[in-house]
């Protein structure tokens, strides 16, 4: 069996109870022992509703938060044991695309600054000088379907779909192996969503990326992912190949989710004329 690129072993996260002047809030168990493994080159879908713990898991993988218990291994290395320098190197290899393209780009920076920032931060690994960074930024924009003339613009001048392309270009800038996609199309129109999904598939085929796709949209997950895990109040409810889960869900929760999702029947495409 192939060694997983990302392995999550019994991760728990408890937010401690808080005492304040007006009473105390109970401790929250956001993750109650989650284990899963993502193999290189696959698209792994993580499906959950709000409050399921999927955001906490994402933040833990990015090491923006430390799990209360359990281990997260990247290529067999325990991320909690990494020193600051090794952790920084690791950050170049795991990147994220965020849900809201209107909030995830710094409004005061130009597209060039946004896309070349990872190269600047990791210049010790990438060894790109100013001109090299500029060339690579232009290359990345072309890769996501934008053009060089967009480099000098600010994010507010772009539509939602274009901003998400910029966000993808930034995520690719440091040459990552694993991309966390945190509902990257849920803020977009369906017409634009289709373009972004196809771009993600195209990039995966070309660059051999591994995707961890976090979403609540089952149709999108079925379209993009090879394997799926359902998470519900901090517990992994069901996991398996996408087709199996969608065709023969085992858990009540999976059946409920599949039943609740609105469906539309669509005619096949006809040639234009």
């Amino acid at each position: 069996m192939v060694e997983p690129i990302l392995e999550i072993q019994g991760v728990r996260k408890t937010y401690p109870a808080r005492r304040s002047l007006f009473g105390r809030s109970a401790a929250v168990d956001a993750l109650k022992g989650v284990s899963l493994a993502v193999t290189p080159g696959e698209s792994f879908g993580l499906v959950g509703e709000s409050g399921s713990g999927k955001t906490t898991l994402t933040r833990s993988i990015l090491r923006l938060e430390a799990p209360t218990a359990g281990r997260i291994l990247f290529k067999g290395e325990d991320m909690a044991r990494l020193g600051p320098k090794a952790l920084r190197t690791l950050r170049a290899r795991i990147q994220i695309v965020f849900q809201d393209p209107y909030a995830s780009l710094n409004p005061r920076m130009t597209v060039e600054e946004i896309v070349s920032e990872p190269m600047l931060v990791h210049r010790d690994i990438l060894r790109l000088d100013r001109a090299g960074r500029r060339d690579r930024a232009a290359e990345l924009l072309a890769l996501v379907g934008l053009s060089t003339q967009h480099l000098a613009r600010n994010p507010h001048e772009f539509s939602g779909g274009q901003r998400q392309r910029i966000g993808i270009a930034r995520a690719l800038a440091a040459g990552p192996e694993l991309l966390l996609l945190d509902e990257p199309t849920s803020a977009l129109d369906v017409s634009v969503q289709a373009q972004v999904l196809n771009l993600l598939i195209d990039l995966q085929d070309r660059l051999g990326l591994t995707y961890l796709f976090i979403s609540h949209d089952l149709a999108v997950v079925r379209y993009l992912c090879d394997r799926v895990a359902l998470i519900h109040s901090g517990v992994l409810v069901e996991e398996g190949p996408t087709r199996e889960i969608f065709d023969a869900p085992q858990s009540d929760y999976a059946r409920m989710l599949l039943g609740a999702a609105p469906k539309v029947r669509v005619p096949p495409a006809t040639p234009s004329g």
Binding site: L87, F98, S104, E117, V121, R170
Partner: peptide, 8 residues
């Protein structure tokens, strides 16, 4: 958050 995830 994006900047922190980059490793800035």
């Amino acid at each position: 958050t994006a900047a922190r995830a980059i490793g800035a």
